[in-house]
Design a protein around this nucleic acid. Sequence first.
DNA 1: AGTAGATAGTTCAAGCTTAAAATTTCAAGC
DNA 2: GCTTGAAATTTTAAGCTTGAACTATCTACT
Lengths: 156, 156
Amino acid sequence: MTASLAKPETLSKERLRLWLRMLRVTRQVEAALREKLRVEFDSTLPRFDVMAALFREREGLKMNELSKRLRVSNGNVTGIVDRLAEDGLVERIAIEGDRRATLVRLTADGRDAFTTMAAAHEGWVDALLDGVSAEDAHHIGELLHRLPADTGEQRQ
Amino acid sequence: MTASLAKPETLSKERLRLWLRMLRVTRQVEAALREKLRVEFDSTLPRFDVMAALFREREGLKMNELSKRLRVSNGNVTGIVDRLAEDGLVERIAIEGDRRATLVRLTADGRDAFTTMAAAHEGWVDALLDGVSAEDAHHIGELLHRLPADTGEQRQ
DNA sequence: AGTAGATAGTTCAAGCTTAAAATTTCAAGC
DNA sequence: GCTTGAAATTTTAAGCTTGAACTATCTACT
């Protein structure tokens, strides 16, 4: 009748349950945001992410840096930037002294579009996380902060 | 010098920050799991999800129910099940009395494969969420539980 | 100069994902 | 029996995503 037998197994199960719950919540919110972007702005989450990264760097970013910052593959960014460029929202600019690299930058149109979308986006998130007080948000954020066995670099 | 002016704006910003953090953590864990499944079992997360759902229902599920349970589109499930069937891990079974629907079920091979993968999967999650105590897990889980302005049905 | 290796980016094949259209079958009402 | 609409599934077009192969350029060393 050793009372402490139950614990060890419980921990990994408890973590698994947490993971599944996080996954569910994240996917639900993500789906809602994707839907909103599609309907309201005929756009997508990946496009929004790229534009957000570029918005913070007025000077522009190299494809390189962009893919590192978004943590997606190189080839992935190529496609998204291609389509954004087709729509005139970003532009590729040659770099002096290195013909391998290109700088990607928001156009004026791109900045306008992003500003509009970002405001809407914040509102959607606010609505989706309606039940969360500032304290909860802060608290969960803290717990989450040091979560995934930090694989090294990261930028907020 | 009204001291309470800062609050209202902060809440939506705080929620936004929480959302971005959740997104980052989720993606990081997801990427790690995907990588593991690919390298160790030459498989993918969507395949794992489908097999997990079928594992819980020994009798099998209709395409219909499968896509509802996983919260992905109908057509999506078609493709994943196609590929799983090619590999002999699931089978489609005609339903008596309704020629529109088909039942999808794990094969014996499928059950074996899933049992192995599920054990590994739990271990990976356990390792990835290393910093999380049972109490933290429980706590975050609680906070998350009622999170996304519940859009209706859901099954753990 | 010449070459070896690193770096930046694109292309490719495969799979995932969605929304919308199309197909097939079923159920009900006339 | 016919038809009309609902239900289950697949197909399609477009985009996202990855890892791997490929191209072009640059850097450094000899």
